[in-house]
Write a protein that binds this DNA or RNA. Structure first.
Length: 954
RNA sequence: GCCCGAGUGGCGGAACGGCAGACGCGACGGACUCAAAAUCCGUUGUCCGAAAGGGCGUGUGGGUUCGAGUCCCACCUCGGGCACCA
């Protein structure tokens, strides 16, 4: 805050020359950062390849610590950004001291929209902007003292990196999912199976009778990366397809407010749905926070049920249902307005209404259609279908609450057992038949008498209840109380009659992988004159981005929904139309002009950290096995600790898992999962302030008094949220370096609370950590001379015992990433040490050294400096972490609280290992306890030796 | 609407079902100083009390238990995710 006390350095010349001030910290920090860089202190040896040092690898456990891949933003960092990086750095440094070979590096996810937008407005090539942003971020992070292996810092925009992104794309492209084997295989093996007849082609024709082009198409249909007509948000005014988040509720573009059209377009897709089951099932083997697993499960949305065929004059209509046991209650059907059978089903007298409804539904944006007030609109087609279990002829409706993209785009409506169907039936006067008898309590809760007549029901019944009205000549569910039993009985009947089968569907859709942008990885794909896609051979990689003058997608007539996008690359005429030899001589080709999405690089970057300079493979298999291979049977392998925010809980983590599994299936990696242990850090948030007009005022100028805030004398209101330019509440690491130094800043961030909790930034509190470090420094260094002041005499036993308790506690806290409590313990030790120094005059070396060692993961620069002042040569980085002496941890007596009826009435000190009687006797001797139980009857006495005594009286 | 997560002093936060509030900030008092800063030493949940001690206290209401911030049920508030998924 602006009225903060004048900084000590500036106050007068009387500040001791060697006080641990921001200025001294800066000098120490710069010195050790230079040392680490020269020394290669954090270089992690590999078992093989260019970074190999087998001798350094031998006999050590390994640890791969990873931060989520940052985008090098031009805006620079604020104090919230490094939170996770500091956390992983502290953990990594701790583990180095425990003897681990630690790999910790940071690279840059540098493709992406901001650089491209910047290029569009300034005309400067995105590479220039990207590289300067990376340089800025590297400088800011270097100043933090992170122990990264600089040799392993890669960027997705490096040609040597995206060559391998393209290579991995080709592996996926050249693979298909073999359902029988439950894994991906190379498409050559698929062609061989077609050829041998082991597998039949999609239309059943023999492989030998198909033309080359037909064979090509047959394979293309099965690839894991494939071209398909996918529904997209096409915005001709911007010349690009938009992500759902970029479309407003009104169906217009977020940027520019142009119309957006729902359209099918030919796009690259990734067949992630083939992996849906494994992506769900393998979550069980990961060490991830449960809420994140749950979010992934919900996103994949596996639901088990049955497909059931209803016959109709227009042909059979297939539905998906999770409740085939309620089939007897299906009193009507609802199709999605886009369902292909709607046209033929509609009777002449209904035609006008149906057409109008379909047109209205098509005009609605997705968001609008979903965000509706939930009124169940719909129209009857006039057509009917036959319920296969009872032969009932039931009406067929269309309604936009049924989505073409999920299941089969048609549902059987069971209004008695589904609330949506119930509302629809009530709204449109359709019959409702119960198929289950709800329990009496259900009726009682709703204040009605139990009845099988749904006319009295206020809502659908969803739950377990015995089946009713559910039988035909061949099968009866009546009386079955278990949904699962009823489901399996009716499903096997349906299967026996060829009317349906057990099926699983997923909410997960295949992944739209094309972007109409410039600043992304080009696809290693060319098209022949028939428009068929061909993969470029590995020798042609990388496919480099062509140089352009203008990076914008071509804008088109904003209202012309039928136009096609012209991505920036399409304007690179010579690049697009090319002549290449891709294996069968020089031929003319047309290049793919879309680029990959930003997710691509982050799907595999962690493996490039392992072997960043390898030119023959994306990663050496031996190196991958060493750092990421499974540890024992059933272990998935993967990164040992992955730290990042929850915002990537679904997409990034799901996409990366998918790519990793493909690479595993194809034998390129030994690990089944990329990230074995995941930890979600919290966010640092900040207060923002607004004046009477609602304008934000700079948070730094606000002062607080008695719970209200003013800025330049004017009252302001406070709100809480993210740090941001518009909120004028940004605090940068650079300001913290300037005022306190990096070690104090690191310590403050770690002390604020547990790593996984979000908390408010409060610059005012930082000084507490600086004071701690100053006290610690003063306990070991003469502030006037700068010389170490430790003495060789042995410390008093209580202090020594406290040291060993601290060692044990800090070690356990570090293992558990509980840095805030580790810091509290170090402060307590240092406070005790200060008391000792106040009387004895100096710190015993036997305390100073382990204290510095324990501090070093948190405040590495200061620890290095003190370590060298304590006459040690070289870095403290690999000095073993202190080990607690069990003999000094054991106490001979312990204080135990005494309760009477659960209320604390006194304390006793008993010998460790004292029996219950000894506890009781001591407790009874306490005056306050005696007066509390005076005149009352002791009912019983609960003694947990060493923990508590509770005397129960009446 | 459904699913997660969180509610503890003035503030950030500690606390294997066993002494609620460690540690830090802030505030108050003292030492040092001509004075201030810095530093060091204390006090600091709240109410009653001179003190000893006691009452009340972990979002609200119930419950389990000798004992609940911690476990169970219901509710309230805030944060996040999904949102007509058949």
């Amino acid at each position: 805050m602006s009225d903060e006390a004048v900084h000590p350095d500036a106050a007068s010349g009387r500040t001791p020359a060697h006080r641990y001030s921001a200025r001294l910290a800066a000098r120490i920090e710069g010195k050790w950062q230079d040392f680490w860089e020269r020394d290669g202190t954090f270089d992690a040896p590999n078992p093989a390849g260019p970074l190999a040092d087998p001798a350094a690898v031998a006999g050590r456990q390994k640890l791969f610590v990873l931060d989520m891949f940052p985008y090098p933003s031009g805006a620079g960092l604020h104090v919230g950004h490094p939170l996770g990086y500091i956390g992983t750095d502290v953990f990594a440094r701790y583990k180095r001291m425990k003897g681990f070979n630690v790999l910790h590096a940071l690279g840059y996810d540098s493709f992406g929209l901001p650089a491209e937008q910047h290029a569009i407005t300034t005309g400067v090539h995105p590479r220039v902007n990207t590289e300067s942003n990376i340089a800025t971020m590297r400088r800011q992070l270097r100043r933090l003292g992170l122990g990264h292996d600089p040799r392993r810092s890669v960027s997705t925009t490096d040609e040597a990196f995206y060559k391998w992104t393209q290579w991995i794309f080709l592996q996926i492209y050249n693979a298909w999912y073999d359902e029988r084997a439950g894994r991906a295989r190379h498409v050559e093996e698929l062609a061989a199976e077609f050829s041998s007849g082991a597998r039949t082609t999609s239309d059943g024709r023999p492989w030998s009778e198909m033309s080359v082009g037909e064979r090509h198409d047959e394979i293309d249909r099965r690839r894991l990366a494939y071209l398909a007509d996918a529904p997209v948000n096409w915005c001709p005014g911007l010349g690009t397809i938009l992500a759902n988040e970029e479309v407003t509720a009104e169906g217009r573009s977020d940027i520019g407010n142009y119309p957006v059209f729902q359209r099918n377009m030919r796009q690259w897709m990734m067949r992630i749905t083939a992996y849906a089951d494994r992506l769900v099932d393998d979550l069980d083997r990961l060490d991830w926070p449960e809420p994140i697993k749950l979010m992934q499960r919900n996103w994949i949305g596996r639901s088990e049920g049955a497909r059931v065929v209803f016959s109709s004059p227009a042909g059979s209509i297939e539905v998906f249902t999770t409740r085939p046991d309620t089939l007897f209650g299906a009193t009507f059907m609802v199709l999605s307005p886009e369902h292909p059978l709607v046209g033929t089903l509609t009777s002449p007298d209904r035609r006008a209404d149906v057409d109008a409804y379909r047109a209205a539904a098509a005009a609605k944006a997705d968001a609008e259609r979903q965000d509706d007030t939930r009124e169940k609109t719909g129209v009857a087609t006039g057509g009917t279908a036959v319920n296969p279990v009872n032969g009932a002829e039931i009406p067929v409706w269309i309604a936009d609450y049924v989505l073409m993209g999920y299941g089969t785009g048609a549902i059987m409506a069971v209004p008695s057992g589904d609330q949506r169907d119930f509302e629809f039936a009530r709204a449109h006067d359709l019959p409702i038949t119960a198929t289950q008898m709800p329990p009496d309590a259900w009726f009682a809760d709703r204040g009605i008498d139990p009845s099988i007549d749904c006319g009295t029901w206020p809502e659908a019944f969803v739950g377990e209840g015995p089946c009713v009205n559910s039988s035909n000549d061949e099968v009866s569910l009546d009386g079955i109380a278990s949904i699962a039993d009823a489901k399996s009985r009716i499903t096997s009947w349906l299967e026996s009659r060829g009317l349906g089968s057990a099926t699983v569907t997923y909410r997960l859709r295949d992944w739209l992988f094309s972007r109409q942008r410039y600043w992304g990885e080009p696809f290693p794909i060319v098209y022949d004159t028939d428009g068929r896609a061909h993969a470029l051979p590995e020798s042609h990689l990388p496919v480099l981005l062509p140089e352009l003058d203008d990076f914008k997608p071509t804008a088109l007539d904003p209202d012309d929904s039928a136009s096609d996008p012209v991505p920036p690359l399409a304007r690179a005429g010579h690049w697009v139309a090319t002549t290449l030899d891709i294996g069968d001589g020089e031929r003319a080709w047309r290049r793919e002009v879309n680029v990959m999405p930003q997710w691509a690089g982050s799907c595999w970057y962690e493996m490039r950290y392992l072997d960043p300079t390898n030119t023959g493979a994306f990663v050496d298999p031996e190196v991958e096995r060493y750092w990421m291979g499974p540890r024992g049977d059933g272990h998935t392998g993967g990164v040992d600790l992955y730290v990042g925010g929850v915002e990537h809980a679904v997409l990034h983590l799901l996409y990366a898992r998918f790519w990793h599994k493909v690479l595993f299936d194809l034998g390129h990696v030994s690990s089944e999962e990329p990230f074995h242990r995941l930890f979600n850090q919290g966010y640092i948030q900040a207060y923002a302030f607004r004046d009477a007009r609602g304008q934000t005022v700079p948070a730094a100028e606000v002062t607080e008094r008695d719970g209200s805030w003013t800025s330049n004398g004017e009252p302001v209101t406070r709100e809480y949220g993210k740090m941001g330019k518009s909120l004028k509440n940004i605090v940068t690491p650079d300001e913290m370096y300037e005022e306190y130094g990096a070690d104090t800043f690191r310590l403050y961030e770690m002390s604020m609370g547990p790593l996984d909790a979000s908390r408010p930034w409060n610059t005012r509190d930082v000084v507490g950590m600086q004071r701690f470090l100053q006290r610690l420094w003063r306990n070991m260094v003469d502030e006037d001379t700068g010389a170490a002041t430790v003495q060789e005499s042995s410390p008093p036993e209580p202090l020594l015992r406290m040291l060993h308790r601290t060692i044990a506690g800090v070690g356990a806290d570090m293992e558990g990433l509980r840095f805030n409590t580790a810091i509290a313990k170090l402060i307590e030790l240092n406070n005790a040490l200060t008391q000792h120094v106040n009387t004895a005059g100096a710190t015993p070396r036997a305390i100073a050294e382990p204290l510095v060692q324990m501090l070093s993961p948190l405040c590495p620069h200061l620890a290095e400096e003190l370590w060298s002042l304590l006459d040690h040569a070289g870095s403290i980085t690999h000095v073993p972490f202190p080990v607690a002496d069990p003999g000094l941890l054991a106490e001979d007596s312990v204080e135990v609280p005494v309760q009477v009826n659960g209320r604390l009435r006194g304390r006793i000190t008993v010998a460790v290992g004292a029996d219950e009687d000894a506890h009781t006797a001591a407790a009874m001797a306490v005056d306050n306890v005696r007066s509390a139980i005076a005149g009352r009857q002791i009912v019983k006495t609960v003694v947990i030796p060493g923990r508590t005594v509770n005397i129960v009286v009446n």
